[in-house]
């Protein structure tokens, strides 16, 4: 239980996927200019991360035991096809949910946070529950970083940020400041 809490807090705050591991930077910079989009993308990513954790655990436990060299290829293929399948299922079962999250799902499969999650969970030898909690923490951390960044960028539209800094430069500097602020969480619940 202690361990699960730490895995969650570590992925959520201390070693935030975006701000400390640099995973999922593509959507973090690309899709974080609107708050509403950021929230939805975050939720959809969390959902995909949970599926990924399940898939990679199944693959590692039952399929790849004697063929570790196929890990990378099978992760990519399985994750991409599972997400596509889930996308179709959601479209059929819940059009509302699909409207909220669906358009992001294919975009997410190419996100390095997803593959990164599977690889980290494998390298650390996480079991099923640990993997799921890790995915939940990583997804929550990703959403948090995305939402904070979206808020900052929406606010910046009203400010007169110098032209020299605008665009990616200021986003990177803001991410650096956020990353600096997240250093305050170091050591949280580690004792």
């Amino acid at each position: 239980m202690d361990n699960l809490l730490w895995i969650f807090v570590s992925a959520f705050l201390v070693n935030n996927f975006v701000l400390a591991y640099f995973l999922g930077l593509c959507p973090f910079f690309g899709v974080s200019n609107k708050l509403d989009t950021a929230v939805r993308l975050g939720l959809a990513s969390t959902f995909v991360m949970l599926i990924t954790a399940l898939c990679s655990w199944l693959l590692n436990t039952y399929v790849l035991v004697n063929a570790p060299y196929l890990r990378l290829i099978s992760f990519i293929v399985v994750i991409a096809s599972t997400v596509q399948f889930v996308e179709m299922a959601i479209k059929k079962l819940s059009p509302v949910l699909f409207k909220a999250l669906g358009i992001f799902l294919p975009l997410i499969t190419t996100n390095c946070a997803i593959l990164g999650l599977a690889i980290f969970a494998t390298n650390r030898g996480y079991g099923l529950w640990e993997g799921l909690v890790f995915a939940l923490g990583a997804g929550a951390g990703f959403t948090l970083a995305l939402v904070l960044m979206a808020g900052i960028r929406e606010e910046m539209q009203y400010n007169d940020t110098p032209a020299l800094v605008k665009g990616t430069a200021i986003t990177l500097l803001a991410a650096g400041i956020l990353s600096l602020a997240f250093m305050g969480f170091a050591g949280l619940f580690s004792r």
Binding site: W6, S10, V14, N15, R124, A186, G187, F189, S190
Partner: peptide, 15 residues
């Protein structure tokens, strides 16, 4: 002589 034991746990930043 004895045993070498590998162990891991939470540190300040990471495992």
């Amino acid at each position: 002589l004895g045993y070498a034991i590998a162990a891991e746990g939470a540190g300040f930043q990471d495992t």
